[in-house]
Design a protein around this nucleic acid. Structure first.
Length: 572
RNA sequence: UGGGGCGUCGCCAAGCGGUAAGGCAGCGGCCUUUGGAGCCGCCAUUCGGAGGUUCGAAUCCUUCCGCCCCAGCCA
C-alpha cells in the first residue's frame, strides 16, 4: 500500500508521540529489544460470516502496524469450530481484505493447520499433570463452575492419573466417545475470581466435518487453547485483540508458560461500533436470513461487501478508521464521520454528470423546434485533469420537480413563475407559464424562454441569478433505475428497542427507495458496474452489478444539503 | 456487595504534575455556473462526583457514582 501519508504526517507533526497506546507499547518493545526488534502481527478472523466495518479496524490496525514498523502481518483463519465455518467465508474474507488494500503475500494460515501440534501440546500438559480428562456433562460443568460470586468446585475427575488421562484423551481422539461425553480441561483453579481460569475446557468432542480437515478429527481445540499457541507457532510478536479478551490474557499466558514455548504479547483494544447500524454477526445474519435486506452485500449493510456495492472506497474506509483512533473505551462512532470521509474522497475523484430523479418537463418556447446543440461541461471542478464532455441541449428538457415552486417560500432561489435561473452549463431561462392537469391541478410542464446570449451559463451583461439547476435533454436522456439508500435503522442505537421487541423494530422503513425511471445524461449510457459519478446537486452514485439491459445506480451518499437544513429551520 | 475494563465538548480522541490538541457534528460569515466543494471564525475556566497531596492536578492519593465485559463443550 502506498498511502501512509496521513500516518507519516502525524508522526512528523508530533515527534516522539505515538498515535495510540498500542503503537506506544509496540514502540517500547522495539526500543527494549523484547522481540529482537521484530514486529509481527496477525489478523485472525473466524470464517463464519462476512467481514464488516468493525473488522476493518482490526485489519487496518494489524496490517497498518506491521507496515509502519517494517514488520509482517499474517492472515490466519481461526477455524477451530467445524460446525460454524465454511470455505465460502474464507474466500469472501480474503476478497474483502484485498479490496481494503492489504496484502499478506503467502502468509496465509489456518488454526486447523496446527491441529496435530496442538494435540501434542495437549498431551504435554497432561503429562505435566496440568490437564485432565473430565467426564462431567455440559450441565454439570456449568454447575461445578460456580457463579460470578461463588467459587466453583473441583471436578471429581480432576485427580485422575497421568496415564489414565493420556489413555482417555487418546481414545477421545480415536472417536470412542460421543459428543459432549468428555472434555480435556486445564487444571488451574476452580476458585479463581476470573472464571476463565476455573479449569477451562481445552478440547471438546465434535463429530463434525471440518471445512478443511474433513473427518480427520473428532476432537477440536477451544479458542483459548488454540489462539496463543497459533500465535506462538507463527512467531507473532503482538497479538492485538478485542478488549473482551483482556480477561483471557491470564489464560493465554498460562498455556504458553506451562508449555514453555515462544511467548507473544497480547494487547487488547476497543472494537468499533457505529451509530445507526448493528455490527454483530448474529444480528447481521438475522437481517439477511429474515429478508430485511437482500443479502450480505446489500448496499445498506455495514459489511465490507455491502459498503463496496454501495460505492464506498477502500481509501475512505481507511481514512475513517485512521481517524477514529485506537483506545480502550467503548465507543459508538457517529456514522456522520464515515459519511464525511466518503464524500471527501468521492468529491476529489468522481466525475460529475447530470441526472433527474423526479422529472418535470420544461419547454423552451423560444428555442427552435428540432434544433439541438452540444454544450461543454466540466467533468470535475476539483480536478481539471478529468477534462470536459459534451451535453446535448434541446427545446424540451427535464428538471427536478423539487426545483420548481409555483409559490416559492422565502430563501427558495430556484425556479418559480417569472423567475430566472441558470441551467448548468446551459442558458439562463425564465419561467413564463405553467401547464396543469385540469383534473388534479398537478403541474405537468413548465414553459420558459431562454436568453441566447447566456450560452454556457454566463450573462455578458453581468447579471446574476441565484439558482443553478441540473437538467437533462428530453430527447437525449437515458432511462435508469436509481436506488436511494438511507440509514438502515432510525435510532442511533438500534438495540434500544421497545420493551417486548428487538432491534428489528428500529429498522428504518425508508432505508430503500427505488426510482424505476430516472433520466440521466447520455454520457452515462455505457457506464459499467462499479463506476462512480456525482449526479450534480444530488449525490454520489455508482453503477450496481444488477445493471444488465438497463442501468441501475446506487446512491452512495447524498451531497450535503443546506437547503434542506434551511427548510427544517423554517418549519420550527 | 466476585473479577476485569472504561469514564476529557453532542460523537470520536490527544493529554502521562506546569495550567485542555485535532477531527466529525453544530453555529456564523466569505466565496461559488453544484444551496456541493473550498476558505475564515465560533464552539470544554474545565476533564464522572466529592475530598486530599502539591506553589501548581485531567494527570498523584482516598472515596463515591456511572457504563461495558465474564458463569458457551462459541470465537
Amino acid at each position: 500500500m502506498s498511502d501512509n501519508d496521513t500516518t507519516d504526517a502525524r508522526s512528523d507533526e508530533r515527534e516522539g508521540v505515538s498515535r495510540d497506546f498500542v503503537r506506544a507499547a509496540i514502540e517500547e518493545d522495539i526500543r527494549s529489544g523484547r522481540f529482537g526488534g521484530r514486529v509481527h502481527t496477525r489478523f485472525p478472523p473466524e470464517p463464519n460470516g462476512y467481514l464488516h466495518i468493525g473488522h476493518a479496524k482490526a485489519i487496518c490496525l494489524n496490517f497498518g502496524v506491521a507496515q509502519e514498523y517494517g514488520g509482517l502481518c499474517n492472515l490466519r483463519f481461526d477455524d477451530t469450530n467445524p460446525v460454524k465455518e465454511e470455505t465460502e467465508y474464507v474466500d469472501g474474507i480474503k476478497n474483502d481484505i484485498r479490496w481494503l488494500g492489504f496484502d499478506w503475500a503467502d502468509r496465509e494460515y489456518f488454526a486447523s493447520d496446527y491441529f496435530e501440534q496442538l494435540y501434542a501440546y495437549a498431551e504435554q500438559l497432561i503429562t505435566k499433570g496440568k490437564a485432565y480428562v473430565c467426564d462431567l456433562s455440559p450441565d454439570e460443568v456449568r454447575e461445578y463452575r460456580g457463579t460470578l460470586t461463588e467459587p466453583g468446585r473441583n471436578s471429581p475427575y480432576r485427580d485422575r492419573s497421568v496415564e489414565e488421562n493420556l489413555d482417555l484423551f487418546r481414545r477421545m481422539r480415536a472417536g470412542e466417545f460421543a459428543d459432549g461425553n468428555r472434555t480435556l480441561r486445564a487444571k488451574i483453579d476452580m476458585a479463581s475470581p476470573n472464571i476463565n481460569l476455573r479449569d477451562p475446557i481445552m478440547y471438546r468432542i465434535l463429530h463434525a466435518t471440518h471445512h478443511r480437515t474433513g473427518d480427520a478429527w473428532c476432537i477440536y481445540p477451544m479458542y483459548d487453547f488454540a489462539h496463543g499457541q497459533s500465535d506462538s507457532i507463527e512467531g507473532i510478536t503482538h497479538s492485538l485483540c478485542d478488549i473482551e479478551y483482556e480477561q483471557h490474557r491470564p489464560l493465554y499466558d498460562w498455556f504458553l508458560d506451562e508449555l514453555e514455548i515462544y511467548h507473544p504479547r497480547q494487547i487488547e483494544f476497543a472494537k468499533l461500533f457505529l451509530s445507526y447500524t448493528v455490527l454483530s454477526k448474529r444480528r447481521l445474519r438475522i437481517l439477511v436470513e429474515q429478508g430485511y435486506v437482500s443479502g450480505w452485500d446489500d448496499p445498506r449493510m455495514p459489511t465490507l461487501a455491502g459498503l463496496r456495492r454501495r460505492g464506498y472506497t477502500p481509501e475512505a474506509i481507511r481514512a475513517f478508521i485512521d481517524e477514529v483512533g485506537v483506545a480502550k473505551s467503548n465507543s459508538i462512532v457517529d456514522v456522520a464521520l464515515l459519511e464525511y470521509h466518503i464524500r471527501q474522497d468521492l468529491n476529489q475523484r468522481a466525475e460529475r454528470r447530470m441526472a433527474v430523479l423526479d422529472p418535470l418537463k420544461v419547454i423552451i418556447d423560444n428555442y427552435p423546434e428540432g434544433q439541438e446543440e452540444k454544450l461543454e461541461a466540466i467533468n470535475n471542478p476539483e480536478d481539471p485533469d478529468q477534462g470536459v464532455r459534451t451535453v446535448p441541449f434541446s427545446r424540451e428538457l427535464y428538471i427536478e420537480r423539487d426545483d420548481f415552486r409555483e409559490d416559492p417560500p422565502r430563501k427558495f432561489y430556484r425556479l418559480a413563475p417569472g423567475r430566472e435561473v441558470r441551467l448548468r452549463y446551459g442558458y439562463f431561462v425564465t419561467c413564463t407559464g405553467v401547464d396543469k392537469d385540469p383534473d388534479t391541478g398537478e403541474v405537468v410542464a413548465l414553459h420558459c424562454t431562454y436568453d441566447p446570449a447566456t450560452r454556457g451559463g454566463d450573462a455578458p451583461d453581468g447579471r446574476k441569478v441565484r439558482g443553478t439547476l441540473h437538467w437533462v435533454s428530453a430527447r437525449h436522456a437515458v432511462t435508469a433505475e436509481v436506488r436511494l439508500y438511507d440509514r438502515l435503522f432510525s435510532k442511533p442505537d438500534p438495540d434500544e428497542a421497545p420493551e417486548d421487541g428487538d432491534f428489528t423494530d428500529n429498522l428504518n422503513p425508508n432505508s430503500l427507495q427505488v426510482i424505476p425511471a430516472a433520466l440521466v445524461e447520455p454520457a452515462l449510457a455505457d457506464a459499467k458496474p462499479g463506476d462512480t459519478v456525482q449526479f450534480e446537486r444530488l449525490g454520489y452514485f455508482c453503477v450496481d452489478p444488477d445493471s444488465a439491459d438497463k442501468l441501475v445506480f446506487n446512491r452512495t451518499i447524498a451531497l450535503r444539503d443546506t437547503w434542506a437544513k434551511i427548510q427544517s429551520h423554517m418549519d420550527k
